[in-house]
Amino acid sequence: MAEWSPAVLAHFERPRGAGRPDGAVAFRHGRGGWVKKGAVVELWLRCEQERVVEARYEAYGCPATIASASWLCEYLSNRPIEQARALTGLDIAGALALPPEKIGVALIAEDALKQALDGDKAPSAAL
């Protein structure tokens, strides 16, 4: 079994921002990943005045997938949208010290982020 970094374990055991928001209508939504590949991340962002004020997620995947979504939501809270836009999956992978074979799940979190920020222009993934 994979050995996880303390950062992954901390997010996996106590995820932040887990669960779809109640009034999801006020949120921008993005999705990344595929069930058959074993990782799906859904992201909801509530933005006010060019800032992300709340970020929530749902995730299906290994501990690294869940940790990536959780880390992302923690990072995004109260962040200028400019900065959110600049974030990449590699940044997430670095922050969580993901092993090389798990970098893909951080890219899936990035896909969900891009889609939430850019709407239809981002790559989309069907369930």
């Binding site: 995820p15 887990a18 669960g19 779809r20 999705r31 069930v35 799906v40 991340v41 859904e42 997620y57 749902e58 995730a59 299906y60 869940i66 369930l127």
Partner: peptide, 10 residues
């Protein structure tokens, strides 16, 4: 895990 699983919620 199901509480925040998009599959289970669907």
């Amino acid at each position: 895990l199901r509480a925040f699983s998009p599959l289970w919620q669907a």
